[in-house]
Design a protein around this nucleic acid. Structure first.
Lengths: 210, 210
DNA sequence: GCCTCTTTCAAACGCTCGTTTTAATCAAAC
DNA sequence: GTTTGATTAAAACGAGCGTTTGAAAGAGGC
């Protein structure tokens, strides 16, 4: 029970290895053997510590998403403490920023985080669903309400479309469409700012006319 | 050599089945046996007609993408014939429209098309890369040039970011982030119009300041 | 009727996968 | 020093995978 180790926990090393490999090759594309090799652990360690590969994925997802949700909630709190009517651009920044910035322990860069999320979520395997908890839903619903308040003329369906657009753009560096390199160059900070510019304008567009 | 069949070509049925299943379950998630079962063909038919599963994927991708590229090119031609300085919104519509509208023979709806494309492109398997041809590159480069002309103040890197944003949003109904249903409801026409509104505003945003 | 070329078929091959099993190892408790 | 409980280790299991094989079936040319 007590931490009686000089080296890092096998469990943690499995989480780190799995996070890296899932982000890079997807859930189906990553074998348990690849994970345990990278972690320097035995093949059976995944079953022992997590029960199954699917449960390891759930543990990885939870570890990645938790700090993002906390940061999003904190950002929204900060915004609402300042004014009851936040601007659309500020809401976008509060929602998108953590997706670029947050960096779970053991990972190397924030960009990898969103890549992992989309890799997980765009995987059609059943195991990669059903991981969101009440915390995620709460944060999302609060943002929905805030956007609805800031954009009273936008029909609910179109608002949902736009919210999914936000997530899609945030994950843009994962989907290297048209054989583009994932991220053109340099800092992820620039990408975050570009995304906020891009999405704030998109969210502020007037509703699509009939 | 000659078409001497009353029923549909086995080859075509394999393409139809593969297109459906790749879109639904991804490349890795679809077995050759599932494809041949759905096509009513023998397991060995894929190897006989296409050589391998990967080459079948390439054939599916080509068949899906070709009409889209043709429609994009035609739309851009139409636009440039009317004016030498097309509006950003018109460029967006010409680029995005075909991704929603085009429907390859045998498929059931246009929405599936973009779903397939993203499923293919977001798959980290090596087989799902390297399928774009010179036609795709030509169309893309023409749109890049047109956007660059319409947005002369936008730095090249940020333009590339935004172009990838267009593709990401177009594919938004594939990635059901946050356990959202793929497409909220009803017509894909509404989604196309919403996307054009959303993306035209996003593309027209001023460059991100330093 | 026979020949030739294309297409279909059932069966098997070799491989990798996630998981399970059983034994060995280890640090602390007593 | 022995016992205990948690962890690691090596090996094997059965299932599913993409692909290959070699023979059967089919269709037109002569």
């Amino acid at each position: 029970m007590v931490a009686h180790v000089a080296t890092i926990d096998t469990r943690t090393q499995l989480l780190d290895a799995a996070e890296h490999l899932f982000a890079e090759r997807g859930y189906r594309g990553t074998s348990v053997r690849a994970i345990t090799d990278r972690a320097g652990a035995n093949l059976a360690a995944v079953a022992y510590h997590f029960g199954s590969k699917a449960e390891l994925l759930a543990a990885v997802a939870r570890r990645v998403i938790e700090p993002i949700n906390a940061a999003q909630a904190a950002g929204l709190d900060r915004l609402l403490a300042r004014t009851a009517d936040p601007a659309v651009a500020d809401l976008v920044a509060a929602f998108v920023g953590p997706l670029f910035d947050e960096m779970p322990a053991g990972a190397e860069s924030g960009a990898r985080t969103s890549r992992l999320i989309v890799t997980i979520l765009s995987d059609p395997a059943e195991e990669t669903r059903a991981w969101t908890g009440p915390a995620e839903d709460t944060v999302r619903d609060r943002f929905v309400a805030a956007f609805r308040h800031a954009l009273p003329d936008l029909p609910a369906e179109e608002l949902w479309f736009r919210l999914r657009g936000i997530l899609a753009v945030t994950a843009v560096d994962r989907v290297n469409l048209y054989n583009q390199r994932p991220s053109t160059s340099g800092s992820g900070e620039a990408a975050r700012d570009w995304a906020i510019t891009f999405l704030a304008a998109a969210m502020s567009a007037p509703p699509t006319g009939t």
